[in-house]
Design a protein around this nucleic acid. Structure first.
Lengths: 339, 339
DNA sequence: GGGCAAATTGTTTGCGCAAACAATTCTGAT
DNA sequence: ATCAGAATTGTTTGCGCAAACAATTTGCCC
């Protein structure tokens, strides 16, 4: 390990300048790709930088320029595949654009915690904020005043006031449900996400829409909390009602629970009962049976978030982004309605 | 939205000081909980801070104190449940300790990318680094010289040179395998993680150890890549060999694929074949059948990482942390050996 | 071969904060 | 009342960098 002088402070631009026999400002210019530097000078500076193992002090740069080159991310959950993928993509895209990412995660999400998180990030002088926060409350919280940091929310309502990047859940749900209808199912249950999430409503809405278009009636959806456990409980209820021959489940994790419930209830999938999920998590293809589901491109969502923030950071007019359309992936969990 | 003066710069300590009729330094003292401030003065300052909506400039503070109050996190993967949970816990623990978290994620992990990531974080003057990086290469990379920033790795080899927080995979595997042995299984396959991951080896080792203790022979493990897809492929191979009546699979995701492969091969679980996984992901209880597995406490690992970094930041001697012992969670995927 | 613009480098200054040092006010014990 | 020491506040300075401005050199035209 090369730790030449553990106690000595890190080299500064001054040290580099001295070694390269130039002014500190010239070092700064080299570092910032200023055009009019003689090749020879640049060489000397780069050499000095290299030999001193110099690295610019970001804090000082931030102070001098009042640009932190950092984007803040607020996440209420990234333990699930979707948010995690989005976060991943956000980080990658940010880095490619030369931005660091500072993250704040919220164990629970209410106006207060979100406000704290935003304050915290504002204090770090982040230039933009991406909020991966599907709950309703987060959407409203994004309006809070805290300087002029642009905020982009992922997977939330489109309020018009700030940019929101999202998947078209309504249309996705319609397509999912229509797939079941086209297979001849007429009694199609819905296992919904919990209240307080905008996507819960969107997915209920799309399901209702497809049923309506086909002249079918929608009963009350069974409500879960996105977890496999809640899906299992919901699945037991759905299985108990012998009229249903299919269920559209608002996400894959709950669908996994539903599959287990159906299995334990002796309803064979897909012979007697069809199931469609939403998300297409990587494991969905290995459920028993492999799950038909709506694929969401979380990575694209994440990238779009960064695009949208960057646009705002650069003072350009907000991006007009159409919601992303999920695509139906047909697997073994759906088949023609029995009888 | 209260954006009083969009173009005006944010208030500084100076502004607060003027409004509160004190010196800037007194404002600083109030902010930093200096003991000897008159209650009245403190009140005036706090009021001024509040009315101006003042927030200290972190960059300036960092420059002045050369303490960034930031911890860097390098992650090669947090799309899986384990790393994501750990990251989550790291972020929570860091925040509670008053530290911000700056994250760099690596799409691919080799000496170069890891080096870049560490450089990047060092440049941000992070005070410590947590590396959530199970690959072998990351362990060695942690030794790279880049100032004196303490590095703690999660779930890697214990090299003695830097602190490493981990689960006891060897013992965990031994317990998992012993569970199968106690159920009377004698031909126990292992679906292993890919080469290049220390845990892959540890888990193979624990499995071999348990077999050895019972006087059983170990054949070559089937190697996967942690994904359900690879588990499925491995499962087909294992199922093809009629001698096996059980498999210990190195993680739950692969176990899910194995279950599907067994199902498709007509081997009933657990009547004809038992499966044990590792991790206890939240969905494991809802596999078909629910999966017996070794529970890992990722959140605890994450918290420990922060503890370990803080200790090092404060110049105390490195923490001596025993590896965390995973616990066996018995579910429906294991039963007495047939016959 | 003088002159003007571009190219190249240097100097001064301030970003917002806290450390170091200095000054003043208060307290209680004599 | 008096003084030591604590309590409380103020002043000066520098952290490392880049912006603004200034100075010098070079290239190229007629």
């Amino acid at each position: 390990m090369a730790r030449p002088d553990s106690k000595a402070r890190a080299p500064t631009m001054m040290d580099v300048a001295r070694l390269a026999r130039v002014s500190p400002q010239t070092v700064s210019r080299v570092l910032n790709d200023y055009a009019f530097i003689k090749a020879d000078t640049r060489q000397r500076v780069l050499q000095a930088i290299d030999s001193l193992d110099y690295r610019p002090n970001i804090a000082a740069r931030t102070l001098a320029t009042s640009r932190s080159r950092t984007i803040g991310v607020v996440a209420t959950d990234y333990l699930s595949f979707g948010p995690a993928s989005a976060l991943w993509a956000v980080e990658q895209a940010a880095r490619e654009a030369g931005y660091a990412v500072s993250i704040v995660s919220l164990p629970e999400s209410n106006y207060r915690t979100i406000s704290d998180a935003l304050q915290r990030l504002a204090s770090q002088a982040v230039e933009g904020i991406v909020m991966i926060a599907p709950q309703d409350v987060s959407a409203s919280a994004a309006f809070m005043s805290f300087d002029n940091v642009p905020v982009v929310t992922l997977s939330s309502v489109d309020t018009g006031e700030h940019t929101s990047i999202m998947t078209d859940s309504v249309e996705g749900s319609r397509l999912a449900t229509r797939h079941l209808i086209e297979l001849g199912h007429t009694a199609i249950a819905h296992v919904a996400g919990p209240a307080g999430f905008t996507v819960s409503d969107s997915r209920i809405h799309g399901w209702r829409k497809a049923l309506g278009e086909a002249g079918l009636v929608a009963v009350e959806p069974v409500v879960g909390d996105w977890s496999a456990a809640s899906g299992y409980r919901a699945g037991l209820k759905v299985a108990a009602n012998r009229e249903f021959t299919a269920a559209y489940v608002a996400n894959d994790r709950m669908a996994q629970g539903v599959l287990l419930a159906l299995h334990e209830s002796g309803r064979r999938v897909p012979e007697e009962f069809s199931v469609v999920g939403f998300d297409d998590v990587p494991e969905a293809a290995y459920f028993i049976p492999p799950l038909t589901t709506m694929r969401q491109d979380f990575a694209a969502l994440g990238r779009r978030c960064i695009e949208a923030v960057l646009v705002r950071i650069n003072g350009e007019p907000p991006l007009e982004a159409d919601p992303l359309l999920p695509v139906l992936v047909v697997r073994a969990s759906t088949a023609r309605a029995p009888g």
